[in-house]
Amino acid sequence: MDGEQARSFEIRAVPVPEALGAPDSREFEAMAEVAALVEESVWGHRTFAWGPASLLPRYRDDRYQPMRAFAAWEGDRCVGRVECEWELSDGAETLDLAIGVLPDARRRGIGTALLEAARGLAADLGRDILTGMSDVAAPALEAPGARLEARDGSGSIPASDPGAAFATHHGFRLAQLERMSGQPLAGRAEEFSAASEAAEAAAADDPARYRIVTWVDHAPDHLVEGMAIAQAAMSTDPPAGESTYDVQQWDAARVRATEEQSIASGRTCLFAAAVLDDDVVAGFTELSVPGDSSATFQWSTIVLEPHRGHRLGMRLKLANLVQLHRVAPERTDVYTWNADENEHMLAINVALGYRVLGLSALWQRDDVAGADSAGTGATNGS
């Protein structure tokens, strides 16, 4: 199709309301619903989607990682959206996108138009690199035909997958694959407790004397500076494949601001940290417990390089699973994403009972102002 005459849709920025349930929040809530429906089209459920109540505090907080969105409308119906997020730390150069179009509205140029809106924002911000994710559930991984592989890791995805086809058509390259895995929790409280006790007993002879400290939502004051250092390392230490990650600058204020945002989003965050006697944080792990879902999400886990080789990763995860059963015993599953080449962390997850549910592809385009992006289609998730 060519020109405005063939366009049956409109792209416009999504207003960020002060609160939900008001007339001026309709477009924001519709955008969040489209995102959930796109997730459902990939996974068969919307467990991984952020509801509007979880999203709104993120959009209203511009201190460290601002977010903006554009939505596609056919009359009064929202049929697609692109969410844009960027890091404000010095030297940051990427704009991260989550693009999705409803299945019955694809192949009309809506995804292309949303991408163009995001490119315009990138140009306004002076960002040279676009990144984004697409998801492929396990059954769809078996689709016949050509495959796409990342440089590192052993996985691959079908080139015919809607997200992959859209990304490659628009000049993105496959920078990394992540395994999306799930772990059942029901009936395992005693198992995790016994395993954690055994891991702590085995660590008693370690002369380094790392102790495991757990907390809910707010880090103890004496550990905030150490947590800032560990959080900053999350943007530099994990395997990055061929992707560009902006180095994040953290201090105590950002740690506290992130805690505030999670609470405002209705999420309970559980932490376990490995700590030395001088309050040095050697590593930590975080579980996010959303208020609008029965699931739990394994977020950051890191052991800083000088402290590796002490089996801290397993100790941290076990301690936090014990804490999860104590704080939120009704939770049924934990979900996590790991770089396909991160063999050490994947081995820990397999030992804990995680199984692969799909792959997430990280796409990158380095010439935002470059080649024309004409075409049609839409990514299939975020």
Rank of each mutant, 00 (worst) to 15 (best):
P162T: 04
P158S: 07
A138L: 15
A138S: 15
L148T: 00
I157V: 14
A150D: 05
I157Y: 03
A138G: 12
H169T: 11
D135W: 05
A137N: 13
V136H: 08
A140D: 15
S134I: 13
M133V: 06
I157D: 08
G155Q: 12
S134R: 11
L141T: 15
A146W: 01
D161L: 10
A167R: 08
E142C: 05
P162F: 05
H169W: 07
A165N: 00
A138T: 08
G155P: 00
G145E: 00
G155V: 07
A164S: 09
A138H: 13
I157Q: 06
D152P: 04
A138D: 11
T168Q: 14
G153V: 00
G132H: 06
A167D: 07
A138K: 15
R151K: 10
G145S: 07
G153S: 04
M133K: 08
H170L: 11
D135A: 13
D135S: 09
D161G: 15
M133S: 07
S134D: 11
A159G: 03
A143W: 07
A140M: 12
A140H: 11
H169P: 03
D152G: 01
S156G: 05
S156E: 06
A165T: 00
I157G: 01
A137S: 14
F166K: 01
L148I: 10
A146S: 02
A146T: 00
G132I: 03
P158I: 06
P158W: 04
L141N: 14
M133E: 14
H169L: 12
D152M: 12
A138E: 15
D135R: 03
A140Q: 14
S154T: 07
S134L: 08
G155S: 10
S154P: 05
A137Y: 03
F166N: 03
A146P: 02
A165R: 03
T168N: 06
G155T: 04
S160P: 00
D161I: 00
D161Q: 10
A143V: 02
S156N: 09
S160V: 01
H170G: 11
S160N: 04
G163R: 02
H169M: 13
S160Y: 05
A164I: 03
L148K: 03
A164F: 08
E142D: 14
S156K: 06
D152R: 09
T168V: 11
E142N: 14
E142G: 14
A159I: 01
A150V: 04
D135Q: 07
R151Q: 12
P139E: 11
G163K: 04
S134A: 14
S134H: 13
G155A: 09
G145A: 08
I157C: 03
A159V: 02
D161E: 14
G153M: 05
E149F: 08
T168M: 12
F166S: 06
G145C: 08
E149M: 09
P139M: 15
